[in-house]
Amino acid sequence: MQFLLAFVIGGIICAIGQLFIDLTRSSVTPAHVLVGYVTAGAILSALGLYQPLVNIAGAGATIPLSGFGHSLAQGAIKAVQTRGLLGAFAGGAEATAAGIVAAVVFGYAAAVLFNPRS
C-alpha cells in the first residue's frame, strides 16, 4: 500500500507541474518550476499541510522537490524550538546539508567524468 501511495501521490505532484508548464506562458523554465516547488513546499510545510502528505505517501512526497522545501521549513522550525533565533537561520541548511552536499559532490563527479552525448 505504501508503494502504491508513493506512486500515486508522487505522480500527482509531478502532473501538477506539467499542467503548470503546458498551460502557462512559454518563459517558464525548469529553474522556475523547481524554485516554485521548493517555495511552495516550504510554505505548505509551515502551514502544517505537508507533513500529513509525507505520512501518507512517504517518498511520494519527499522525493519531489517540494519535499526539499518541507525539510528546509521543518528544520528551521525545529531549530527555533531548541535554539531560538539563531535556529531560524541555521535550521534549514542543517536539515538538508546531506542532500545539498551530495548534489554538489555527485554533480561535480558526473560532470567531470562524463561528456555530453547528444
Binding site: 508548464i21 512559454s26 523554465t29 525548469p30 555530453p116 552525448r117 547528444s118
Partner: peptide, 19 residues
C-alpha cells in the same frame, strides 16, 4: 545544433521537453 541550444536554450543533456 549543440552550440545554438547551449547559447539560446538549455544544455542538451538537461531533460527539458520541447513544445
Amino acid at each position: 545544433h549543440n552550440t545554438a541550444e547551449r547559447q539560446y536554450r538549455f544544455p542538451t543533456e538537461q531533460g527539458v521537453q520541447r513544445p
